[in-house]
Simulated assay, not measured.
Amino acid sequence: MKDTCPSCLARDIAPAESRTRGDRVVDGYRCPRRHAWAVTRDLTAYSELHARRARNRTRKAAA
């Protein structure tokens, strides 16, 4: 998912790194002007497909 730099407002910045942590994804960004930031997204809020995947992972972890 692309984002906008919060410092200089450069648009359509692709993540430099992504990590999945349970039902969340942490994306690390760096714009062309070298500003860096991270965004955590709760996958259950984005689509029914992601919500089902997150629930399945949670059930497997609980078993």
Rank of each mutant, 00 (worst) to 15 (best):
R59W: 11
V25H: 00
V25C: 01
Y29C: 00
D42N: 10
N56A: 10
D27R: 02
A16E: 07
R11S: 03
A36S: 10
R11L: 09
R21G: 05
R57S: 10
V39T: 08
A14I: 00
A51R: 12
R30F: 10
A62V: 03
C8Y: 08
A10R: 07
L49Q: 05
R19N: 08
T4C: 03
T20Q: 06
K60E: 11
Y29V: 00
R55K: 14
D3F: 02
T4Q: 03
S7L: 11
A61P: 04
R41K: 15
G28L: 13
R30A: 14
P32H: 10
A10K: 06
V26P: 01
R19S: 12
L9W: 13
R30Y: 06
C31V: 06
A14H: 04
S47P: 08
T4H: 02
R57A: 12
A62N: 05
D12T: 03
D3G: 00
A62P: 01
K2S: 05
R59V: 10
D3M: 03
R11T: 06
T44F: 15
L49R: 07
V39P: 06
C8I: 15
Y29S: 00
R53D: 06
V25A: 01
R24E: 04
A51L: 10
K2N: 08
E48Q: 06
R57T: 15
S7W: 06
H35D: 09
K60C: 05
R57V: 15
R59A: 11
R34D: 13
E17T: 09
R53H: 10
W37I: 00
C8A: 05
D42L: 13
Y46E: 09
E48I: 09
R33N: 13
H35R: 00
H50P: 05
L9N: 09
T44E: 15
